[in-house]
Nucleic acid binder design. Structure first.
Lengths: 338, 338
DNA sequence: ATGAAAGCGCTAACAG
DNA sequence: CTGTTAGCGCTTTCAT
């Protein structure tokens, strides 16, 4: 890794001139420019980004925090984010928080000192998110993806879907297709998005005049796998459900598995509707009907909103007003519902 | 973000003293140490890692290149790598190459100028990997994970399983359990690991005196989905297979799907064996028997070998001799084979 | 159009 | 034990 000084010497010019031709600033005599360019070519010189970052106060790096990249949902988001960041010359540092607020917090603290230019965060379920709000308050471009709290709206940049409406529509679809006893595989209540989906489910039921039955809502006890038992339980009710709405595809997979083991046919005995449209859902047996979130696009949107904030901040010294990007969902009917 | 100078001023000492207490080098008067520590506390000072990196020539950052994080296989590896890197204070930059050698190459070039301390790479299938070998040649700690070429052995650090033996054992298991017509969902031939798995399959057949039938090996035409058609074809043979060995779990998922659509029961009509043991395989219907690679651990091992190289290089100025870490596989019998 | 010089924030001799 | 100083590699006034 040659340094600019070496290039300058070899070309018989000063480092400032080399810098100038490399950055296309102000005019440089085209003869000298040529000479410099040649040397750069020969020596395979690449400017040291670290030094540049230090000088300029920017690193062209953003940081993504997700609970776990092993969860397909976050894998899709990550892909979208990385793709669009890369196209703009940004690198992305990945951190798996494992739903541990301590890890999340420590990581953010550490990353701040890297002059990371922005943070895209799918926050951990448990934690108080004050340190995330502080992040923005202290001037870091920040985007919440998927997961966010009510109070964040208007205060932070957010990329999400309308979880209430999406769940409402999903439930409505199940009702419209003749189902009356609709069970819900609900997500962890600490997460606003799951409370919203729950609300949507309740509202759709109410609007259709179907009485709410708490025995029909399965709650996550310890990890997604807990829906295996929950499914067995709900299916052994005197009046078992004729449809199950899982509030995420990974949950739907374990419900599906439990149903198979119970000898129940999908959708003949019970319809199953998921939420997310993760890549694998189309390969399940039967292929899973689901409320599709545009996960990849949400990752792209998160990157874009971060880039936008970074730009704005570099121009105006402050962050732009927060926006809430609410993306549309698609109801994807495959063969697990009828 | 306060700077060390400010801390120094506030504490009434010089920056070097602050640096010393922060780095625990040489002795500092415990009274002054206290004072400095207090100011550090108050101002929430974190040293600027960029400046430190520039000065020291190290960034405590490694780079991971994978074809796509959306592929569960790479998600597991990534998780293992990130977990162990983080524990050692390293950040990891993620790049999805999408099997595009151009992207891979460009990314590596760019990352070199970030003073990235090491590269963990699951190389793209197509490309000539000279630039990866150059990476090591030019002094960058490098680890190949899963995918590698014959010629890399001994020349580069590699973390993999013994693909030949694993496929041999998997096939052997199928034979031992009474199968004679064993089809193979083979992977892309450009990948050494798939050629090895193919060899293992052939060898096991030969050793058991079962004639090789080329009609029984399905080849990837265009993405994993092409195995859907291939499965239909092979099942419509006059003498269809009584078992299918898929050389990766994602392939097994589409084979399984095709089998279902064909009305074939697994394992009654045909046994199905996968390769990888991706998280979802246990949730399939039926749960997939598979040759389990320790993917998470392979990620950990890749991080460790990188860390080891980095250490060694910092001490001795050169990279340590390359090692090939061959990890064991587990035959995981679930319910898709009998 | 080009060079000299200052400085981004930090570490590491080298003096004292 | 502590302060001074010289850079790490680069950008950017400010002169020339």
């Amino acid at each position: 890794m040659a340094s600019m000084k070496e290039v300058a010497d070899a070309a018989g010019v000063s480092v400032s001139t080399v810098s100038r031709v490399l950055n296309g600033k102000s005019c440089v005599n085209s003869a000298t420019r040529q000479r410099v360019l040649e040397v750069v070519e020969q020596t395979k010189f690449h400017p040291n980004v670290l030094a540049k970052s230090l000088k300029l106060g920017r690193s062209h790096t953003i940081c993504l925090l997700v609970p776990s990249i092993e969860n397909q949902i976050f894998a899709h988001i990550t892909r979208g984010l990385e793709d669009t960041a890369r196209k703009s010359g940004f690198a992305v540092v990945l951190c798996n928080t494992d739903e541990d607020a301590m890890v999340e917090r420590a990581y953010i603290d550490k990353m701040k000192t890297y002059w990371i230019e922005g943070f895209a965060i799918c926050p951990t379920a448990g934690g108080n998110e004050d340190y995330i709000r502080d992040l923005r308050a202290s001037g870091f471009p920040t985007a919440l993806v998927c997961r966010y709290s009510q109070e964040d709206v208007g205060a932070m940049d957010i990329v999400s879907v309308d979880n209430y409406q999406a769940a409402y529509d999903g439930t409505k679809y199940l009702i419209r297709t003749g189902h009356r006893r609709i069970a819900l595989a609900a997500g962890r209540e600490e997460l606003f998005l799951y409370r919203e989906r729950y609300r949507g489910y309740c509202a759709a039921l109410a609007d259709a005049g179907i009485p709410y039955d708490d025995e029909l809502v399965m709650r996550e006890v310890s990890g997604t796998d807990s829906f295996y038992q929950a499914t067995r339980q709900v299916m052994s009710l005197p009046e078992p459900p004729d449809a199950i709405f899982a509030t995420s595809d990974p949950k739907a997979f374990v419900v599906m598995h439990a149903l198979h083991d119970l000898g129940k046919r999908i959708p003949q005995d019970v319809s199953l509707l998921g939420f997310d449209n993760v890549a694998l859902s189309s390969n399940m047996e039967p292929p899973l009907s689901t409320v599709g979130q545009p996960l990849y696009e949400m990752g792209c949107a998160a990157a874009k909103t971060l880039l936008r904030q970074i730009d704005y901040k570099n121009k105006n010294g402050v962050l732009p007003p927060a926006i809430h990007h609410v993306m549309g969902v698609d109801l994807i009917i495959r063969r697990s519902t009828n």
